[in-house]
């Protein structure tokens, strides 16, 4: 049984951040006493105002930054193919086709296109871009570029996918559609996701756990769970249950912003 189908409390641990502190330039404390456990199959949102260190958490997990103190540990140790990353921008290589972009993680491991072709085709099919293998990024819409970026992040079936406000720059219709498709994708491949956002609605719709963060110094001040079962759809999006969770998350966010002020 995939971990995502287990109740939250029974999922095996994947990643542990304990008492992590990160300071920049010796004076700016971006994160303080930040602890976070991510279990297999979790969809965890980091929700908070600008400057609360959400992105710093992702950069620490991805190894782009190192902690000032505290530890980040992976169950069973970490390898370079444990991670997939989606940034706020699609961040595609403009000189490469959609399929070549999705090939990148394999290519950097020294795998030829031919040897990865089946996985690449699968990934593009899963994000709904069957017919766009040979399209260059400039010919794709903003939403389609983001789909290519998602395909690239999941093509190697990483243990954890980090998403840093991936849909923030998209229009609302496209964002809703991509939210739906992301959940569908998660159901199909059973991945674990850490999702950074500053949209209350997005975080409630997508996640089973929401970490609400406050700024200066960045830390988690509330943890909410959204026990609604997946798959979630438009019915969930308009339900009283969803509204109640949004209210709770919104209150927590206000609390976080009050603390910062």
């Amino acid at each position: 049984m995939p971990a995502a189908r287990l109740p939250l409390s029974q999922r095996p641990a994947l990643l542990n951040m304990t008492h992590v502190e990160k300071a920049f330039g010796g004076s700016v404390v971006a994160l303080k006493d930040m602890s976070l456990t991510v279990n297999e199959g979790d969809f965890v949102s980091l929700l908070g105002p600008s400057g609360c260190g959400k992105s710093t958490v992702l950069r620490l997990i991805s190894g782009l930054l190192h902690t000032t103190s505290g530890t980040i540990s992976w169950a069973g140790g970490q390898g370079t193919d444990d991670l997939g990353v989606v940034f706020q921008e699609p961040t595609l290589m403009p000189w490469a086709t959609a399929a070549q972009n999705v090939w990148l993680p394999f290519r950097l491991r020294g795998q030829s296109f031919a040897s990865a072709e089946a996985e690449i085709a699968d990934a593009l099919r899963l994000v709904g871009l069957d017919h766009f293998h040979d399209a260059y990024p400039r010919a794709l819409s903003g939403g389609m570029k983001m789909r290519v970026a998602i395909a690239r992040a999941m093509v190697t079936k990483p243990r954890l996918i980090l998403m840093d406000e991936p849909f923030a720059a998209l229009d609302e219709i496209t964002r809703f559609k991509l939210n739906d498709d992301l959940l569908e994708l998660k159901e199909k491949i059973g991945c674990t996701v850490i999702f950074v956002t500053h949209s209350v609605f997005e975080s409630v719709f997508l996640s089973d756990r929401i970490m609400v963060m406050a700024a200066r110094p960045g830390r988690v001040i509330h943890e909410l769970t959204v026990p609604a079962p997946y798959p979630r759809d438009d019915v969930f999006r308009t339900s009283a249950e969803y509204a109640a969770h949004c209210r709770a998350a919104s209150d927590a966010l206000h609390d976080a912003m009050g603390e910062a002020a």
Partner: peptide, 15 residues
């Protein structure tokens, strides 16, 4: 960001 992605995937200097 692409450069960061290359770092995350452990790209060599030559790659």
């Amino acid at each position: 960001n692409l450069s960061d992605l290359f770092t995350i995937y452990g790209a060599t200097r030559w790659q």
